[in-house]
Amino acid sequence: MKIEPRRLLELLAVARHGSISGAAEAVNMSQPALSQSIALLEREVGVKVLERGRQGARLNDFGDALVFYAQALESLLGRAGEEIRMRSLGLEGTLALGITPVTAVDLVPRCLELLMRESPNIAIKVIDGLDQEITEMLRTRQLDVLVRRLGIAPQYTDIEEEPLFGVDWSLIAAPDHPLAQRASVRLSELADVQWVLPAGGSAFRQQMELVFASVGQTWPERGISTNSILAIKSIVMNSACVSVISPRLVEVEAAAGRLKVIPLEDVGPPRPVGLVWRRGEKLSPVAARFAKIIRTLAQEENELRRAAVATP
């Protein structure tokens, strides 16, 4: 079966605009020409892809399946054009990287610094989003590679995952907070504390909801909500509020004595964070360099942490 790529992009326009007329205007075609193109696409694939009615054109299941590949094609063409534009400006290439909040600190920035030092003539775009969002962006070729928690987003046969390191969650409090003197606490026993936690709609909030759900706790309604990790840390340092966060995000403040990190007993073992890419596809040269660097740094960090734990 051979599909004309242009027809996929035209089907994508119909999906976005919900009608042949709206899509025809968007792609600068006449309605009859676009209708004929969709009919030819249906002939190529051997099934109907649109249900036409008084309310417009609606994709059926076959059309939805094709739109996924149409989005990937659109992204791929856009990335190709951007790559050529960058090379025409004297740059070597590009990297589109997807991350989540817990991976935005420490390891990924160090990797990017080493990558830029090794390859200064590159352009890097970093997207911070929900696990599911950046996974879909990877699948539709808007991103080259991800660094995110594993086992959170749905499992797809077209992506591959490689664990790099583990992330745990701890309670943070001001040094003079009553809980700061505890060697450890249980999340399930903190019903009466004042919280500062991520607001809705963020990747950080999604991750925290899973932490509370893992111990059978409902999301706390009392306290302060914000999508700024900087604000969460500052509020905890200057108030009686506490929060749940990865110790990686507060290493500087903890080392300076501004925050106390208290291990949580009941949230389970560290969650794996890893590298994610499209299965069966060769990484671009820049993405391959990034992957090599982050693997090396993760291995070195894991060895240091194991040595620290083994030291009496």
Rank of each mutant, 00 (worst) to 15 (best):
G78R: 11
L41T: 15
R6E: 15
S202N: 13
L112K: 05
R7D: 06
A57F: 02
L143Y: 01
S284R: 02
S202G: 12
A173I: 12
I293L: 13
V45H: 03
V250E: 00
F62N: 13
D144L: 00
E83T: 13
L187T: 05
V242E: 05
L297G: 02
P32C: 08
L114A: 12
I122F: 06
L73T: 08
A231K: 13
R52V: 12
T103C: 15
V250W: 01
N227I: 12
S184A: 15
K292W: 06
L66K: 05
A254I: 07
L114G: 12
A96K: 09
P220Q: 09
L275Q: 06
L259W: 07
G53W: 01
M137W: 05
S234W: 14
L11G: 04
S243R: 00
R7G: 02
G166K: 00
V108T: 14
F68V: 15
L150C: 06
F212K: 01
A39C: 05
A291D: 04
R117F: 05
N121H: 04
A256S: 10
E44V: 09
A308W: 08
D106M: 12
L230P: 05
P312K: 04
S239P: 07
K233D: 13
E303L: 10
L264S: 02
V196L: 10
Y69L: 15
A203E: 04
F290K: 04
A287Y: 01
V147C: 10
A80P: 06
I134A: 01
G93N: 06
P285Y: 01
W219E: 14
D106Q: 07
L11I: 08
I38G: 00
L190P: 02
V147I: 15
R6W: 10
A255N: 07
E4S: 10
P154D: 02
C111S: 14
M29W: 10
R279S: 12
R148F: 01
I294V: 14
L77T: 15
E281H: 09
A23E: 02
E281C: 08
P270M: 06
Q299I: 11
D168Q: 12
L107K: 01
Q71V: 14
S284N: 01
L89A: 12
R52F: 08
L304P: 00
A308I: 15
K292D: 10
L91V: 13
V185Y: 07
A231I: 11
S284T: 11
R52E: 10
T296M: 08
L146M: 03
E209S: 04
M116G: 14
G129H: 04
D64L: 10
A213V: 13
E92M: 13
N60L: 08
N302G: 09
V126I: 11
P220S: 07
